[in-house]
Computed example of a mutant assay.
Amino acid sequence: KFFGEIKVTSQVVGFYKVAWNSYEKLAYEEVDLPPTTLHTTGYWFALGEKVIAKLREAGSWNSDLNDYGPRWNEIRQQVRARDNYCCQICGKPITLCPRCHSRAENVVRVKSGLSGLAYTLGHLAPLLLMCDQYDLGIHADPKSPLGGGQPTVVIYEQIPAGVGFSQRLYERHNELICQAYELVSGCSCEDGCPSCVGPGGVLGSGGKRETLGILGELAGR
């Protein structure tokens, strides 16, 4: 585990219109805004090769990057040419633009154990620190440079330069992981819900089993 200074770059590409009472998503609108950069502090930890190997053996690891085979670049170019180098959803001159790609993935949501872990920690950390939920941001990366190319979860402060939350999370790392394990293992849902690892969607899987496997290894359970 680590904590230190980091630079976070983010960009808002759209927003949902949501019903006031039910939070039902009514529509999606795109916006064209420049990226913003935040210099702050963060706390992060990476999953080592031994942990990942154990999870693979147990069938509890699904966060590897996709391997499309040695001919992927050739096939990709053929598909792009077939589609006239245009996004098949919005018609823009690109195979599948990032915004449409994200929306396509949300149709069939398969939550990985890593993203489920980030969801759980992102909701527990503010309770542990007694701070506002929006004081912290969280990011899960299956191949992060912060973690030496290993799967990494980063919790960072949404306040320029930080106010010490990252160091406190670093110091209470074991407590955070153990509480996360107790939360997920004690939840009565079958495969993820907003109270533990987040919902899996109507289609797809919620990743609860994978998240619990990661937490079990980290907590030594």
Rank of each mutant, 00 (worst) to 15 (best):
F3W: 14
G4N: 08
E5Y: 01
I6R: 08
K7S: 13
K7H: 11
S10Y: 08
V13Y: 03
G14S: 06
Y16K: 02
Y16I: 01
K17P: 01
K17F: 14
A19W: 08
A19M: 04
Y23Q: 14
E24H: 03
Y28W: 13
E30R: 15
V31Y: 09
D32C: 02
T40G: 01
W44D: 07
W44A: 07
W44T: 08
I52K: 00
K54M: 02
R56H: 05
A58G: 02
A58C: 06
S63T: 04
D64H: 01
N66P: 12
Y68D: 11
Y68V: 09
G69Q: 04
P70N: 04
P70E: 07
R71C: 02
W72A: 09
R80M: 07
R82C: 00
D83G: 00
D83Y: 13
Y85K: 03
C86S: 10
G91K: 02
K92Q: 06
K92Y: 03
P93C: 03
I94R: 00
T95D: 10
T95M: 06
T95R: 08
C97Q: 04
S102K: 12
R103T: 06
R103S: 11
V107A: 11
V108H: 13
G116A: 09
A118W: 02
Y119N: 09
H123M: 09
D135S: 14
G137W: 05
I138Y: 04
D141V: 07
D141R: 11
K143H: 12
K143I: 05
P145H: 12
G149W: 03
P151C: 09
I159A: 07
P160K: 05
P160M: 07
G162L: 06
G162P: 12
V163C: 09
R168H: 12
L169M: 05
R172L: 10
E175W: 04
E175K: 06
E175Y: 03
L176N: 05
I177C: 08
C178A: 15
C178L: 15
Y181K: 09
E182Q: 15
V184H: 03
E190I: 14
D191K: 08
D191M: 06
C196I: 12
V197F: 08
V202S: 13
E210V: 01
I214P: 00
L218F: 01
L218N: 12
L218T: 11
A219D: 00
R221V: 14
